[in-house]
Design a protein around this nucleic acid. Sequence first.
RNA 1: UCCUCAAUAGCUCAGCUGGUUAGAGCGAGUGACUGUUAAUCACUAGGUCCCUGGUUCGAGCCCAGGUUGGGGAGCCA
Length: 504
Amino acid sequence: MYIKELPAYEGKEVTLRGWVANRRDSKGLVFINLRDGSGVCQCIAEAGKISENDFEQAGKLSLESAIELTGTVVKDERQIGGYEVHVSKLTVIQLAEEFPIAKKEHGIEFLMDNRHLWLRSQRQWAILRIRNTIIYSIHQFFQKEGFVQMDAPVFTGNACEGTTNLFETDFYGSPAYLSQSGQLYGEAMAMAFGKIYTFGPTFRAEKSKTRRHLSEFWMIEPEMAFYDIHQNMDLIEDFLHYVIRQVLDNCQNELKLIERDTSVLESSLKKFPRLTYDEAVAIIKGEKDVNGQNSIRSLEKELAEVEAKITELEAEIAEREARLAEPGMKKGEINFNQNKIATMKNELKDYEESRRNIPQWIESAKNFQYGNDLGGSDETVITRLFDVPVMVYDWPHEVKAFYLKRNPDNPRFARGVDVLAPEGYGEIVGGGERETNEQMLREKIIEHQLPMQDFEWYLDLRRYGSVPHAGFGLGLERLVTWLCKLKHVRESIPFPRMYGRLLP
RNA sequence: UCCUCAAUAGCUCAGCUGGUUAGAGCGAGUGACUGUUAAUCACUAGGUCCCUGGUUCGAGCCCAGGUUGGGGAGCCA
């Protein structure tokens, strides 16, 4: 019997098992917010309607104690789930020690140190359930489209894209690396099965300390024989539409809990604009407008709005602090004001960060060097102008991976495609059409200074029935982070592994 | 690797230009209260001011080096 099933049991007696999420008491009443993994429900123990011993136990329950209780389900509009339970019997399974995570706000370091306990909080519960829905819908989509799920190895002997930092391990005395992409194996499997997708962990030893990097993350990499770059983009769009639709349809409750404004998710069900690199650069530099909006001018406008907001917040904080300094304020009111000030100070920090960042974005946009890869700020500059993911394709071949095919009409460009998520979330997908010409690949492997002998098996694919093919890689955590509008990827995975974080 | 900000009670923070005995809220403990939603009210306990060295009559505050963490660049999904 789980809390989410309560509506079907109105007026009936049920037995629930779970943990104490919160407890309040007054003389003859104890209110217990019970959490059982499926949801939360208020349970009431009333003196006289329960044995004296059970009532005394109820009053002593500490946060996160494990209990079993029996009671009657009563409809009550005031409650979160719409129902509460009037307890007739209560058994303590374990009385918890003082729980480190209080009902107040905490700093991120403390929360990360207590990740194993933090997972129990409502917000984390909602985010990771959305993650689950995303994973499930990814499998549903590819399976219904006739893809075969295949797994690429985690230990690899070759660095598939070279250069980037790999985690090195010892494989029976030889160096081996933890996979940073299953892509090359995906191509081999696509030549055997037609359409495949891999879904597994990926490792990057980048000493990145940013809100969108993890050292261990999960990647979905479809690879399709007989697809060109345009079919690839069609698939990416259908795929993301499907996942977003599933999250909107199945996670209303969770989205509400994390206070996700879903308007951009709704608008992302539209067609995704497809820009060539050249068009994207023109937009970034402010040489081309989008829907009447100019990148540089809209940034300047936002900067002015941020400045105004900062002034406004500073004034309100000062005013509340002055009021607090005067005597005679009630304790509850002091508490309320202090919390309000703390919240506003956090908001202020965000705005101050924007105030520092925006001028840099403007500078970097104005001075963008044609031919370079897009940096984080360039991605933000471009995606701000859309309420839907944007696809950028046909990149200068020098900045992209060795295995991408050249545009036959203009070999300066490689047929790679990046999908940039709206709301400042940046790159969530990278992919493209693969080079089919063995000689071109050999030249590229030499150019990238990769060990040729490690790639002979890959070049075999071009010798035995080479066909046009394409694919892409989606970073699961980045998708979760965007769909939930999180500030940092570390909340999108149960136990994040990142620079400086290996425990818990 | 580089830039930048921070570290004070179990937690979140305040602590003015360097000045006597370092504060608040939450949490914990005790008590009051029959409908609370982070309940409320009263009282109690709780400190190696990150570490090492320096300046000074005097350092939580200034200086140097280090450690750990936040944000960002590069690189990427």
